[in-house]
């Protein structure tokens, strides 16, 4: 498998502080690879090292087969980057910004078409300081695409976007992937990683805690799909007599893993025989969010994670 990025034993030290503590991973061509982690976990530092903006303290790394620090010029020609909290010159319009990047990269760029692609065509002639937070982010994405990059780094591209704009950006990322581009996505929205990423690495305190596809991680660390029965006290008494079920009772909820087929059938038959009804029944499965909480820490409101 071709690796667009390969990292082995990467360490970044600031004095005595180890921001990145010996991480290794590789990003296959044409996939969406997502870095997930709380603030200060070392995500941005790692990404900036991959982009050639910072120099690694130790470790081997290749981006498109190049050393991103030494061969920064060549790397920058071939990758697109939207930095975290993207900012541009206040008095420059998106149209001018795209044309400017086109001249710097020596490419013919259809600026209006590119702005249309990121849903910014209506603001093409407004100066940057007049754009909303979401529109600024979109310009950041547009500029990352000017040089038709093989590899795109997006550092928290949807932070501050409203749900609708966020979905639109997701759609764009799916299109970019279809075009064969590799996407390195840093995010602290778990839903985003689950929706978009082929591979997720959860990073915490400068180390990769675990890595895999969202489904693999859920299967590995989650509790698997299950039926959850809301029960009345009478119903609980009935259910407690079902063999193999007693240990699954939690308050007035009874959880039955789907793979325990016989237990499930026995339980439903017992309920039918008693003539009682359940107030509520649902199926549940763990999301990346639950996995993340288990592995890293507590959740913050709005789906953001804090260490």
């Amino acid at each position: 498998m071709d690796a667009v990025i390969s990292v082995d034993g990467l360490v970044k030290e600031y004095g005595k502080l180890r921001a990145v503590d010996g991480i290794s991973f590789s990003v296959p061509t044409g996939k969406v690879y997502s870095f997930l982690g709380p603030n200060g976990a070392g995500k941005t530092t790692t990404v900036e090292i991959l982009e050639g903006l910072r120099r690694a303290t130790h470790g081997t790394l290749r981006v498109l087969g190049l050393d991103p620090w030494r061969d920064a010029g060549e790397v920058h020609r071939r990758v697109g980057v939207m930095p975290q909290g993207f900012r541009f010159f206040d008095k420059v319009t998106p149209l001018e910004a795209v044309q400017y990047y086109g001249r710097l990269f020596d490419v013919q760029v259809d600026a209006p078409a590119l702005l249309k692609r990121v849903l910014l065509e209506e603001k093409a002639n407004d100066t940057f300081d007049k754009l909303s937070g979401g529109q600024k982010q979109k310009l950041g994405i547009a500029l990352a695409l000017v040089n038709d990059p093989e590899l795109v780094f997006l550092d928290e591209p949807t932070t501050g976007l409203d749900p609708q704009a966020r979905r639109a950006v997701w759609e764009l990322l799916r299109e970019l992937r279809k075009e064969g581009r590799t996407i390195f996505l840093t995010t602290h929205y778990l839903e985003e990683a689950e929706n978009l990423a082929d591979q997720v690495a959860i990073i915490h305190h400068g180390k990769i805690v675990t890595e895999g596809s969202p489904a693999e991680l859920i299967a590995k660390y989650g509790r698997g799909p299950r039926i959850v029965l809301e029960a009345t006290p009478e119903l609980l008494k009935v259910l407690q007599r079902v063999p193999g079920l007693s240990s699954e009772v939690k308050g007035n909820q009874v959880e039955v893993p789907l793979h325990q087929k016989q237990v499930l059938i026995d339980a439903l038959q017992a309920i039918a025989a008693s003539g009682l009804v359940w107030p509520d029944i649902s199926t549940q499965r763990d999301t990346l969010e639950e996995v993340f909480i288990t592995l890293v820490g507590e959740m913050e409101e709005g789906g953001e994670v804090r260490a």
């Binding site: 259809d110 000017v146 040089n147 038709d148």
Partner: peptide, 19 residues
């Protein structure tokens, strides 16, 4: 520096330019 093969060529995108 040339030990890794470069990423394969991309389908050109109609929305924006070629080098």
């Amino acid at each position: 520096p040339s030990s890794d093969p470069l990423a394969p060529s991309l389908p050109s995108s109609p929305a924006h330019g070629s080098r």
